[in-house]
């Protein structure tokens, strides 16, 4: 592998154990990358040596993911003031309607009351998102305008990350206990103290119910955890055998 470019912004991809092999996930939040700071470069953390073909596949998928994310976010905050005005107009119409329905209440309006959030809610959310995430939108536009993804893949050298990854792999290498996705999630959370990996395993458990042998209650708790941490969304890039 090559050395990291001095100006490059590294995108960290981790090869972590699963029940049947290994999976690659990206921990870096694409929304925090700013193309004006420098080009993007993939840094892979893996306990085993990956062939160059595997690196190429991972790189292509991360690049596709990164730019897809940028396209999704590029409209955020673009003319955010106008978006805010639109939201306020919508709010005004909503307030007028609620006042009207309350004053002239008849039975059929009860059903309409319940439906109102579904009609007006998304418009308000759209306006709020545009204002709240205007910097994310700006970075996404800059990614599309001048974002360059370097073809060379580098070895991840962050000491903390390497240590966390080793902790996680030691779970499957010890072989003295049955390992399922939930067990790995638990180890990532408490032993490796790695929230991103824990989230990744929760996501993996949801994607593959066959791997998920935890109780219903535990699954519900995991699901609830996602609501509290909506921004941290590690992405599954590829799977491989060990």
């Amino acid at each position: 592998m090559h050395e990291a470019e001095p100006t490059a912004q590294l995108i960290d991809a981790f090869v972590v154990p699963t029940t049947k092999g290994a999976a690659v996930f990206v921990e870096t939040h694409y929304c925090e990358l700013d193309a004006e700071t420098g080009p993007f470069q993939l840094a892979i953390y893996s306990p085993m040596v990956l062939s160059r073909g595997e690196q190429a596949i991972i790189r292509s998928r991360v690049e596709g993911d990164l730019f897809t994310n940028a396209v999704r976010n590029c409209q955020l905050g673009n003319r955010w003031f106008l978006e805010l005005c639109m939201g306020l107009v919508g709010l005004g119409v909503f307030a007028l309607l609620v006042a009207f329905l309350t004053i002239n209440y008849v039975a059929i309006f009860a059903a309409i009351f319940w439906a109102l959030p579904f009609g007006f809610g998304p418009l308000a959310v759209q306006a709020l998102r545009s204002v709240r995430f205007r910097r994310v939108g700006k970075r996404a536009r800059s990614t599309l305008q001048c974002g360059e993804f370097l073809p060379e893949v580098v070895v991840g050298r962050n000491g903390d990350a390497v240590a966390r990854l080793r902790e996680l792999w030691s779970v499957v290498e010890s072989k003295d206990q049955f390992v399922d996705v939930m067990r790995l999630e638990h180890e990532a959370r408490f032993r490796a103290r790695w929230p991103a990996a824990a989230l990744f395993y929760r996501k993996l458990a949801r994607l593959s119910p066959g791997h998920n042998q935890a109780s219903l209650l535990r699954r519900v708790i995991f699901k609830a955890g996602e609501w509290f941490e909506p921004d941290a969304t590690p992405r599954l890039i590829a799977t491989r055998s060990r």
Binding site: G64, F67, L144, Q145
Partner: peptide, 19 residues
């Protein structure tokens, strides 16, 4: 072609043509 080509080509029109 790998499946990533779909997302790469899907986002390409929004990117600067120099890339």
């Amino acid at each position: 072609a790998d499946q990533s080509a779909v997302s790469l080509f899907g986002s390409a029109p929004a990117r600067n043509p120099q890339f």
